[in-house]
Simulated assay, not measured.
Amino acid sequence: MIDNLNLDQLRVFTAIAEQGSFSAAARHLRRAQSAVSNAIVNLEAALGVALFDRSGWKPALTNHGRALLDDARAVLARADELKSRALGLTQGLEADLTLVLDAMFPPKQLVALVAAFRQAFPGVPLHLQVDTLDDIPQRVLSGECDLGVQGTLSDIAPALVAHGMHKVEMMPVAAPAHALAKLQDITVAQLGEHTQIVLTDRSASAGGRTFFVVSEQQILTTDLGAKYAMLCAGLGWGFMPRGFVEECICAGRLHELALAEGACPNRNMPLFAIQRRDATLGPAGQWMLNWLVEPGGGQRLPAPHVP
């Protein structure tokens, strides 16, 4: 019966396949060869198929054995993840972690962060949300998110603790065919004569905020991807984070506007990692905070180890 199989039998199965023989697997597992042979006999009986052809001088995987080997490895990997997560929970590790990011957060840095987090805490599901402006601190304050990366806003709610991060360079861009793309030494007055595409938050109708705005004619959007699409379509000009548009500029889809010296001098947007003042971060959350403040710094806090 298949219900009679166990993880030990699967470990023996994969060990034989990887080591090439029953005797090599026994040495690898530090067991008697008879114990290894019995485990395979019992596993084959439970599955109802022959896993190895024993007619030669070395055992060879049967067609059924080759078909089931990847499944056995997958089951063992999931079992190890289960053990790791259970051990982590007993040591105070979070069951999951939710992070809300400002839409301006550099995508390459996000990829590096997620890759490092998965390596450090493979048993902790990471939930990522992307938002803008006032909506980010609200998600952290409500407890919906454990951590946030807040950009642009200079004021931090008293119930939050803020940790300074790097700044994001904002670039003025437009489609190559846009009138501003043909000018040099563009002044603020000239920018103001053209429609500006502006990123805002969902509370704009109730007094929400916008930043880096110099034109009276505006198209407001809560989605950075929509802003990018409208810029490429020539519907206006706008500020975009360098990390989002460098490749687009090189490919000719967008053009960096040549502003006059002194026009819009402060185009760097600060980022802050934020957490609730009354909430204590677990090991994964603290690791994440360290990484955000000093990319790669989270690696100083190792994840729980499962023997």
Score class of each variant (00 low, 15 high):
Lys182Phe: 05
Gln109Ala: 12
Val41Thr: 11
Glu294Thr: 15
Pro59Ser: 03
Phe121Ser: 10
Asp131Gly: 15
Gly192Cys: 11
Gln218Pro: 01
Ala25Lys: 11
Gly282Phe: 05
Ala46Gln: 02
Gln138Ser: 10
Arg11Ile: 02
Gly262Val: 03
Arg276Asn: 04
Asn4Trp: 00
Leu97Trp: 01
Arg118Thr: 10
Ala162Ser: 15
Phe13Ser: 13
Thr187Trp: 03
Arg277Val: 07
His255Ala: 15
Phe272Gly: 02
Pro304Asn: 07
Ala79Asn: 12
Thr14Trp: 03
Gln9Leu: 08
Lys167Arg: 15
Leu69Pro: 07
Asn38Asp: 13
Leu231Ala: 01
Asn290Pro: 00
Pro106Thr: 11
Ala273Pro: 05
Leu69Ser: 05
Ala60Gly: 04
Trp291Cys: 10
Met104Thr: 13
Gly48Gln: 06
Ile156Asn: 09
Arg27Leu: 12
Gly236Asp: 03
Tyr228Ile: 14
Gly56Ser: 13
Glu94Ile: 08
Ala159Lys: 12
Glu261Phe: 01
Ala112Lys: 11
His127Gly: 01
Leu61Asp: 02
Leu235Ala: 13
Arg31Phe: 05
Gly56Phe: 02
Thr62Gln: 11
Leu254Pro: 04
Gly282Lys: 06
Leu5Val: 09
Gly207Lys: 09
Glu294Ile: 07
Val161Ile: 12
Arg30Cys: 11
Pro137Cys: 03
Trp287Ala: 10
Leu147Phe: 04
Ile40Met: 15
His255Val: 07
Ser203His: 14
Ala50Lys: 14
Met288Trp: 01
Gln184Ser: 15
Thr187Tyr: 09
Thr200Trp: 00
Gly207Glu: 02
Arg85Trp: 05
Thr90Ser: 14
Leu259Phe: 02
Leu110Phe: 05
Arg85Phe: 02
Gln286Thr: 12
Asp201Arg: 03
Gly238Cys: 05
Arg139Lys: 15
Arg30Thr: 13
Leu191Thr: 06
Leu224Ile: 14
Met1Phe: 02
Glu144Arg: 13
Gly296His: 08
Thr280Leu: 14
Asp134His: 11
Thr132Gly: 00
Ala189Thr: 12
Leu289Asn: 11
Leu89Met: 10
Leu199Trp: 02
Glu193Phe: 03
Pro304Gly: 06
Leu147Gly: 07
Leu254Thr: 08
Val12Gly: 09
Arg253Trp: 06
His166Ser: 12
Phe121Glu: 03
Met165Tyr: 05
Ile16Lys: 06
Leu68Lys: 08
Val188Gln: 15
Asp185Ile: 03
Thr152Gly: 07
Pro137Gly: 08
Glu193Ile: 01
Phe239His: 06
Gly234Pro: 03
Ser55Cys: 01
Ala60Pro: 02
Val124Leu: 10
Gln218Leu: 09
Pro270Val: 10
Leu7Val: 06
Asp185Trp: 03
Phe121Lys: 04
Ala32Gly: 13
His194Val: 04
Ala60Tyr: 00
Leu199Thr: 06
